[in-house]
């Protein structure tokens, strides 16, 4: 029981991170119907930028951790958003009217580029960061096993819920969100009615990248180890989460993220840790085959 509860907490934390990345996939898929294959690597860039900014802050004497983390968060979001915007501008926008698989192929190219770019400029070795946020609470004790809820886990979950709230509000209430939903339904018509389609799509990428940056920072703080390759696997899992929740649906992405996080954690805890990725990938295949519209998605109607 105690072990189960601990795994539940760990799974929810991991799921929060996947959920934040999944939002980027789901929004982009909703609006232009493409899989932004490079999104996982945007998350990786976010983690690296967070790490570097944090190191700089420490070296110039900003040692008050909450302030430092706030600055890291803002700077990482801005820089990573710039990456998201640039990727869209260079690799996807020129191919918007091309055939469907063309942007997917440039996305793969971009993903390879970003991975190797970070490898070249920052080196291939893993980067480790000492635990920044320590401490936590003991929730339960029994059978010689203590259930811990660490501070970092609390922060990750609260931050995720807060961001979810903010972005749901943006999509539901603001002009940007309205434009986004309009583009999702019919890009041509939205354009005719005066919505700046290119700008809306760009902003979608920017928002997705900003959330990925937050996820990157969380990943860095939670695990303390990053390398240039983390984006690939995390990206596929987050995409699985987006599909599981129903692609195009924001709450769905979050829900999917949590489920994938839980599956992965429980699989590692009760079965074999080596095959945890197999569990997540099989989940992807199973979901796509048996319920391609996901848990909260709308079934897609094929138009001729």
């Amino acid at each position: 029981m105690e072990y189960f509860l601990q795994q539940l907490i760990n799974g929810l934390t991991l799921g929060s991170i996947y959920g934040l990345i999944a939002i980027g996939y789901t929004m982009v898929y909703g609006i232009i119907g493409m899989i932004n294959f490079a999104h996982g690597d945007i998350f990786m860039v976010g983690a690296f930028v967070s790490l570097i900014v944090f190191l700089i802050l420490l070296s110039i004497g900003v040692t008050f951790i909450p302030l430092a983390l706030l600055i890291v968060l803002v700077v990482a979001m801005v820089v990573t958003s710039a990456y998201g915007w640039t990727v869209e501008r260079l690799a996807y926008r020129p191919l918007r009217s091309s055939f469907r698989l063309a942007p997917l192929i440039t996305a793969i190219g971009m993903s390879i580029f970003l991975e190797n770019y970070v490898q070249v400029v920052q080196g291939a070795r893993v980067k480790t960061l000492q635990p920044v946020i320590t401490g936590g609470y003991t929730i339960m004790e029994g059978n010689g096993f203590t259930v811990q809820l660490s501070n970092i886990q609390i922060i990750i979950m609260i931050l995720t819920v807060a961001l979810m709230g903010i972005f749901s509000w943006i999509i539901a209430k603001t002009p940007l969100g309205r434009a986004q939903r309009a583009c999702e339904q019919d890009r041509l018509m939205a354009g005719l009615l005066g919505v700046n389609v290119d700008r809306t799509i760009s902003l979608t990428f920017v928002i997705g990248a900003a959330l990925a940056a937050v996820a990157g920072l969380m990943f860095l703080l939670y695990y303390g180890v990053i390398d240039f390759y983390i984006g690939f696997v995390a990206g596929i899992k987050a995409f699985t989460a987006a599909v599981l929740g129903g692609i195009g649906s924001l709450p769905g992405a979050m829900l999917g993220g949590l489920i994938i996080g839980l599956i992965e954690t429980f699989w590692s805890a009760y079965f074999t840790i080596e095959y945890k990725d197999v569990a997540a990938f099989s989940m992807l295949a199973i979901v796509l085959i048996f319920m391609p519209s996901g848990l909260l998605g709308k079934p897609e109607v094929e138009k001729v």
């Binding site: 690296f48 570097i52 710039a82 080196g123 980067k127 480790t128 960061l129």
Partner: peptide, 21 residues
Amino acid sequence: AVLASFLLGVRTIPAEGGLSF
């Protein structure tokens, strides 16, 4: 400049007790 700021402008290196740059 924004893109290059941290990833190109700063190089992290493994050092004793964590990272240096």
